[in-house]
């Protein structure tokens, strides 16, 4: 509940700022300061910028204390419908290249035909790329339309923001690091682009951002969660398959999720200690 209240407060504040900005712009226009007015309008628009637009680094959130939070992520694979809106939202929110090889999050499709071997595919599959038609659109093709599917399910994947992350361990400069509130982040101004972390991550969660020549990955939308908002993928999921929250909050969706379910993590044998908790996955899921 507290999460919700905070969010409402923040949204309200943003609206007020937007209104103030617009008022300022109107006043400036009335006074005849063309350039000033344009700048103020641009600023006002920026405050309402939809997800995906490139904005300047807003800096740390005032008053945010990362020692007072511990975030975790839940995935209810039984609810995922494979619509891939999460993959698109992650890209829009974080300005990720629109091709199937670069991503903040992805969804895997598991299918068993006639009780045989389980087949797996995702956005990088040629059939799915073709079905999507254009690069900024993701969808799973209908390859199983006429098959006798004996078992099928989707598994959303993302960075596990591990407790003992192998990627952080191997980073030669410390450009990738573990925050106090549980996220694993990358300092793009400090990363040298050696890609050792991509090799070290057993989950395939990292990719190389060729434009910036640094490694990139899911941040749980750190710029959002520190403001009390949900990550973009959680926000857009129409099936509530993605759950996010603060383990240190008196009450949160993720605490309920962990309490009410028998949860699993991916590849526990690696010793990385993942912080994305799953329910409803099968033995093939790695």
């Amino acid at each position: 509940m507290e999460d919700e209240i905070d969010k409402d407060k923040l949204v309200g504040r943003r609206e007020i700022l937007g209104m103030l900005g617009k008022t300022g712009a109107a006043i400036a226009a009335l006074l005849g300061g063309g350039e000033v007015a344009q700048a103020v309008v641009a600023q006002a628009q920026a405050s309402e910028t939809p997800a995906g637009a490139v904005t300047a680094d807003p800096g740390p959130v005032p008053g945010y204390d990362w020692t007072k939070h511990k975030y975790a992520f839940g995935v209810d694979a039984t609810r995922c419908i494979g619509c891939l809106r999460c993959a698109v939202a992650g890209k829009l929110e974080n300005n990720v290249a629109f091709d199937p090889h670069h991503f903040r999050t992805w969804v895997e499709r598991y299918g068993t035909v006639d009780g045989g071997e389980t087949l797996i595919d995702s956005q990088n599959d040629e059939g799915n790329i073709k079905a999507a038609g254009r690069p900024d659109n993701y969808r799973f093709d209908d390859r199983y339309a006429d098959a006798n599917v004996t078992k099928a399910f989707f598994v959303p994947k993302l960075c596990n923001h591990c407790t003992r992350p192998a990627c952080v361990q191997v980073c030669p400069t410390g450009a990738t690091y573990k925050t106090e509130d549980g996220a694993v982040l990358i300092d793009h101004e400090y990363c040298i682009g050696c890609r050792y972390c991509i090799q070290a991550c057993p989950y395939g969660a990292r990719f190389f951002n060729e434009e910036k020549q640094v490694t990139d990955k899911c941040t749980w939308c750190y710029h959002r969660i520190t403001k009390g908002l949900n990550p973009a993928c959680v926000e857009v999921c129409p099936a509530s398959a993605r759950i996010f929250g603060d383990l240190k909050a008196p009450q949160s969706a993720i605490k309920d999720f962990i309490r009410d379910n028998r949860i699993q993590v991916l590849r526990p044998d690696t010793g990385n200690g993942p912080n994305v908790f799953y329910i409803g996955i099968d033995k093939e899921v790695l």
Partner: peptide
């Protein structure tokens, strides 16, 4: 990707990194 930052690994080395 950023060879100009290569010295970051020596000036501020991450002690757990083999590299």
């Amino acid at each position: 990707g950023h060879p100009e930052r290569a010295f970051n690994a020596i000036l501020t080395p991450h002690t757990t990194s083999a590299m």
